[in-house]
Design a protein around this nucleic acid. Structure first.
Length: 876
RNA sequence: GGGAGGUUAGCUCAGUUGGUUUAGAGCGCUUCGUUCACACCGAAGAGGUCGAAGGUUCGAAUCCUUUACUUCCCA
């Protein structure tokens, strides 16, 4: 059967993924004879679809997991999805709206029924897509953050932390998302630079006709919530207002002027309106001065009846309107443009309103300490380490975590309110009832007297438990899985969720297992387009990963992405990268085709010893290099090492060296070595390109039923004897070949025109040893030695040796002379600089002996080269 | 505004404790080349003085200072 000249991945990939699963290669179970290697997937949103970021992230995980599996470890990659409370709920709400259903018309149960229906229909698509990428997850272990067992874990932790006093309920200033109508955590708030307006409003001083106090504010719509105007006590402009009151414009309500050093005298007019309900700083000022709180904002961002004016209108509409109205009554002094920052919701993009609200919080300080320590002392290593700084800064300034959300899609908070207004926290309603009875002494309380908290928990309150909960470590803290697979080894994720997720997982790990959840955190960059822009639906610059896989093969896409993805660096995605990946697949495929086509003849002598020995030396060096790169999480470099080994050393050099003449057989010994090398290369490539390597593994030889490259042992580097010498000698031989080829190019001779070579060299043995290779790769019909070159010849100089290629009729004496003179001039310049360096007494005194030795060697080499060049010039 | 990075070939990046001249790689580019695995290919080649200025040193892309630009985090 003849093989196609181009590799076609489509059929191959589906076939092998299925076989791997049939063989159960991805299944992991505790095995005391093996070392565990565990990775938990950063669970994608359950209703999400695969995007380029997932491709990068999961390719890296798969490379790590596949390599560990080949290294004989019990490799366990746990997949799963996240319920993504706010994102999913928003999606479901939008979907229902399309169907003409308003969330507000539904009961909690009805809404959840819709949500689960949606989840069952679209949930987990992304996991199916990951299979196309080749992800070797243990699919039997697939978890979902809102499934019963993981919900149980969340509730247990909530109850436990509440009992430990680390979770509390209280009224605090929170970030209110009027779009999602929920509180969100500080981490979910994104500051955005905007061009805003500063409004200068005139507050009339009570009892002093015609006197005004001008206050600058960017939010004139909040004046109805004002409870004071504050000025700095050191500000002479306002000293006369001590004990005075001012009147809120339009509204007319009287508020006191207060004095506080907090007020900046340079900002605006130096007078600050105090609105405790809608600004954190104002709130603190209000508490200090014992001021009331007037909350004028409804949950959806409109003004409520406490505002008196503009009730029911959206805050931004009011901002515009009130400016007009103030203008009309002459209480708007001016409007200025200024650069400002607004806080927005990461999810809904809505402008956040600071709002006083009754919420659940988690105390962070106590847990943050050991979690910071773990990273500082490298118990958990961040790759690249520059993220340590970011981590430290956040951990040292960590604030309490607002964990309650006014949503339905999520884990409902296990707090139960009693008729008397107190509450109990318990894992189940039954437990809660018992507690309630104990707490109140009322034995006749029933379940119907208890009302469970309406709120759900932040999604991250389930994901922070992920490395433990996927192994059922809360329900059953001593089970075989958690004891074996925890702590996990490596976590691969984006730096954008370092605080949301990574830091909190470390806290949870230390709190509940007294052990960090992972040893290494590999932080990927963001996938951007070739112009460096983020991929987005609006820009339409994000390719569909599945299209790419269909077009270039999963192997091509995987390698393409890794080519340009050092840890922590953004990846500028360009289709050229996946083309390169595909081309590499094709190169490998054709190397295989070539070898596959060779017929062995056992009677032929083994003629390729030099090539075989050399390639082995290269191979072993590359394995050492790859292992080192992997050790340091330098995946791109590991890939580049094997890429160059395959393409340059194996294909361009080695195969050309051993390749028999067209339609001639090869000696059996050479074929045996070549096949073995190809097998080793397939193993080294397998983590990066699982599909084509498996295909070729099976094409290359008859395999036993369980003999797959997926579970083949990772090659161990050996140290071949005389490796350094082998490599140096071949380098010299290949330099001669390159010299010959350069002459061919200069003289436009074509690659196959037979030429002869005359060598004037101090190392004739080397030339003799490598004559076969020089002849083959240089298309040289004859090699001879001489003290002087033939008259009509082109020469080149390598070290102290001179090589001549007789070329009747192709010689331009003048051009040759010029070329050699140029080379000579350079060599002389080089020699002079080295001489100067060596002549410097201070250098001779201070430099290390090996450096000095190197310089002397350089000088000797240069002089030999100069002598050879001078000879060559003379010979012309 | 505070903090941490980055600035090396057209592009994306390496460059370990300062010591190969003409500072490397991949891609791209240029020239030449299709009977003999692969044009998703082969051969050869061009291209940077390491953001700028100053300093330490026999010697600096590498250490120090200042500065410019830039990315990210926090406010």
């Amino acid at each position: 059967m003849s093989l196609a000249t181009t590799y076609s991945p489509t059929d191959v990939e589906a076939k092998w993924y299925q076989r791997w699963q049939e063989q159960g290669f991805f299944k992991a179970k505790p095995n005391p004879k093996k070392k565990p290697y565990t990775v938990v997937i950063p669970p994608p949103n359950v209703t999400g679809v695969l995007h380029m970021g997932h491709m990068l992230n999961n390719t890296i995980q798969d490379v790590l997991v596949r390599r560990a599996r080949m290294q004989g470890k019990e490799a366990c990659w746990v997949p799963g999805t996240d319920h993504a409370s706010i994102a999913t709920e928003a999606k479901v709400v939008a979907l229902l709206k399309e169907q003409g259903i308003n969330k507000t018309d539904l009961t909690r149960e009805e809404f959840l029924a819709h949500a689960f229906a949606w989840k069952d229909k679209y949930g987990g698509i992304i996991l199916e897509q990951l299979k196309q990428l080749g992800a070797s997850c243990d699919w039997d272990r697939t978890r979902f953050t809102m499934e019963p067992d993981l919900t149980d874990a969340v509730l247990r932790v909530f109850v436990d932390l509440y009992n430990k006093g680390l979770i509390y309920r209280g009224v605090r200033m929170v970030n209110w998302d009027p779009e999602g109508r929920t509180a969100i955590s500080d981490e979910e708030v994104i500051a955005k630079d905007v061009q805003a307006k500063m409004y200068y409003l005139k507050y009339a001083v009570v009892g002093q006709e015609g006197q005004f106090l001008t206050v600058a504010t960017s939010r004139p719509e909040t004046i109805m919530a004002d409870v004071a105007v504050a000025v700095n006590p050191n500000d002479p402009r306002y000293a006369h207002l001590a004990g005075q009151k001012v009147r809120i414009p339009l509204l007319g309500r009287e508020i006191p002027v207060i004095f506080d050093e907090y007020v900046s005298m340079d900002f605006g007019t130096g007078a600050l309106k105090v609105t405790p309900a809608h600004d954190l700083n104002d709130y603190e000022l209000g508490v200090k001065h014992n001021l009331p709180v007037i909350d004028i904002l409804a949950d959806n961002g409109t003004l409520n009846e406490k505002a008196v004016l503009y009730v029911g209108q959206d805050r931004f509409a009011v901002r515009k309107q009130i400016a007009k109205d103030l203008q009309e009554v002459g209480l708007l002094e001016k409007i200025e443009e200024y650069a400002s920052i607004v806080q927005t919701s990461e999810r809904t993009k809505a402008v956040i309103e600071p709002k006083l609200s009754l919420q659940w919080f988690m105390k962070m300080e106590q847990m943050a300490k050991p979690a910071l320590e773990a990273v500082e002392n490298d118990t958990v290593r961040l790759h690249p380490p520059k993220f340590k700084n970011m981590y430290r800064a956040w951990m040292e300034n960590v604030r309490d975590w607002c964990i309650s959300r006014q949503l339905w899609w999520g884990q409902q908070i296990p707090a139960y309110y009693l008729p008397d207004g107190t509450f109990v926290v318990a894992l189940t309603a039954e437990d809660a009832l018992q507690q309630a009875i104990a707490q109140t002494g009322k034995a006749d309380l029933t379940l119907s007297d208890l009302r469970q908290d309406e709120d759900v928990l932040d999604t991250w309150f389930s994901s922070w438990l992920w490395p433990i909960s996927v192994f059922d470590g809360f329900k059953d803290p001593d089970n075989a899985d958690i004891n074996y697979f925890y702590p996990t080894n490596d976590l691969v994720t984006g730096p954008d969720i370092l605080f949301f997720w990574v830091a909190r997982m470390i806290m949870a790990g230390l709190e509940y297992r007294q052990e960090v959840p992972f040893k290494n955190v590999y932080l990927t960059g963001i996938v951007r387009d070739a112009q460096g822009r983020k991929m987005s639906k609006q820009l339409g610059n994000s390719p569909d990963p599945l299209d790419l896989i269909a077009q270039y093969g999963a192997d091509g896409v995987r390698t393409g992405m890794l080519f340009s993805a050092p840890a922590g660096n953004d990846l500028l995605y360009d289709v050229k990268l996946v083309e390169q990946g595909r081309n590499f697949s094709n190169k490998l495929w054709n190397a295989f085709r070539l070898v596959k086509g060779w017929e062995a003849d056992a009677s032929l002598p083994f003629v390729n010893e030099k090539a075989v020995t050399w390639f082995n030396a290269r191979l072993q060096a590359a394995i050492v290099e790859m292992d080192d790169h992997f050790e340091k999480f330098r995946m791109s470099d590991a890939l580049m090492t094997i890429y160059k080994l395959v393409w340059d050393d194996f294909c361009a050099m080695y195969l050309e060296m051993v390749k028999p003449a067209y339609q001639h057989p090869i000696d059996a010994e050479s074929l045996r070595h070549t096949t073995a090398y190809l097998e080793t290369l397939l193993k080294l490539l397998h983590p990066f390109m699982p599909f084509i390597t498996e295909e070729l593994w099976h094409e290359l030889a008859e395999r036993g039923p369980r003999d797959y490259v997926t579970v083949a042992p990772w090659p161990r580097a050996t140290a071949p004897a005389h490796s350094a010498e082998t490599l140096t000698n071949m380098d010299k031989a290949l330099a001669i070949v390159a010299g010959i080829r350069a002459v061919r190019n200069q003289k436009n001779l074509g690659p196959n025109k037979p030429l002869t070579l005359v060598a004037k060299t101090e190392e004739p043995q080397l030339v003799t040893d490598y004559e076969g290779i020089i002849r083959k790769l240089g298309s040289i019909s004859e090699v001879s030695f001489a003290e002087a070159g033939p008259a009509a010849s082109v020469s080149f100089v390598l070290g102290g040796s001179e090589f001549f290629i007789p070329l009747e009729g192709h010689i331009d004496m003048a051009a040759e002379r010029t070329r050699l003179e140029k080379e000579l001039e350079y060599a002389q310049g080089f020699r002079d600089s080295v001489q100067k360096k060596l002549g410097n007494e201070k250098f001779a005194q201070n430099a290390k002996p090996e450096v000095l030795e190197k310089e002397r060697q350089k000088l000797a080499d240069a002089e030999a080269k100069i002598a050879a060049l001078e000879q060559a010039l003379k010979g012309l």
